[in-house]
Design a protein around this nucleic acid. Structure first.
Lengths: 188, 188
DNA sequence: TCCTCATATGCAACTCGTTGCATAGCCAAG
DNA sequence: CTTGGCTATGCAACGAGTTGCATATGAGGA
């Protein structure tokens, strides 16, 4: 249940409400873990029941009240324990790759538009990551020197950047392959 | 439900039993989609019930009998329909990245062994992929010219290779960062 | 002979994750 | 003044995925 741990990390970095967590999962934390608001609310409730989190009701003006969650002792201990346990290297789940291999049983050229769309999405994500890197870590507004937490956030973001660059290059390879298959193959 | 589609692709490439599919999901198909045998058996049963697959009981000597599944008309149509529908670009789930960011609230240097272990696993996987590429696509034993299906399998495998190379380089970056944080930071 | 390993299939119970829906306050635009 | 949008929380139902267990055949080795 890595969602629990992702929530602990995020709340340790900064306490917040379920709604705010959901927004973070669309941005920074979401670079490497995703969750919908329903899932987050459900898990927050369970974690509070387990004594890992504390809640504080915050009354707000000009918007609905919210519940601010923060990590308490046992939550920190649970994170620490998890950090000491080994985890299995990730296994990939790439639906587009299934489609590409499936295209052999259909018309491969029909996939070109789809792959171009994915390339665009990854290209947008890369631009977003690079803007965040400049803003938070490498630009003139960024704090210097970075503390350990910021260094670690930065190296994770560099991973996201590397992933998007690799993916874009691969999708170009896929597009070239699909286009080559669409035209008659020249024989020597 | 991409598992269904991954199974359709795999069975179109070659009919087989649940057990054989489970083995493929540890190898070639497993490069981009994973599944356990329990999941596979359950889904195969459902797909057969839905008329997407046909079964044939095969009696074997020196090992238990098996059921060989193959794709029939409606299954092929279901795959074709799915290929024509757009899918969302993948969202990443990277547990190790959660750990790295969480290490800020513990001792970062404790993660070094863990990251080294992951690096080794990815390195092994890369070697495995490269051996497969040589065997099936680029070596002297490989068929020439490749047909469309093989070209598409190859480009997916190139994606796996690119992913592993990128990941190894990133893990080296992570290790360098963890080691830097472990030693006192030199001030200008 | 007994044990282990590989093949082969499956149930049951559980957790994780998604989708659709519902509610409610407040603001700004039309 | 109604509509749409953003903040904020939540339920219910379902499907996806994991874990543990159970069963059976036959080969090979201790």
């Amino acid at each position: 249940m890595a969602l629990e741990h992702a929530i602990l990390v995020s709340l340790l970095e900064k306490p917040g409400s379920g709604y705010e967590l959901a927004r973070r999962f669309e941005r920074s934390i979401g670079y490497f873990w995703t969750a919908t608001h329903q899932q987050i609310y459900r898990v927050l409730k369970r974690m509070e029941g387990d004594g890992l989190l504390a809640v504080r009701a915050l009354e707000q003006q000009s918007r609905p009240d919210k519940k601010e969650y923060s990590v308490v002792g046992p939550g920190r201990a649970a994170l620490s324990q998890w950090l000491h346990e080994p985890i299995e290297p990730e296994s990939i789940r790439h639906e587009l790759a299934v489609k590409i291999r499936g295209a052999a049983f259909d018309d491969p050229s029909l996939l070109i538009r789809e792959v171009e769309r994915h390339r665009q999405a990854h290209s947008d994500r890369l631009a977003h990551y690079l803007a965040g890197e400049l803003r938070d870590f490498t630009g003139p507004e960024a704090p210097t020197p970075l503390d350990a937490g910021q260094e670690l956030q930065h190296v994770v973001l560099r991973g996201g950047i590397a992933y998007e660059r690799m993916t874009i290059a691969w999708l170009d390879d896929v597009l070239a392959t699909l286009r080559r298959l669409g035209t008659p193959h020249p024989r020597p």
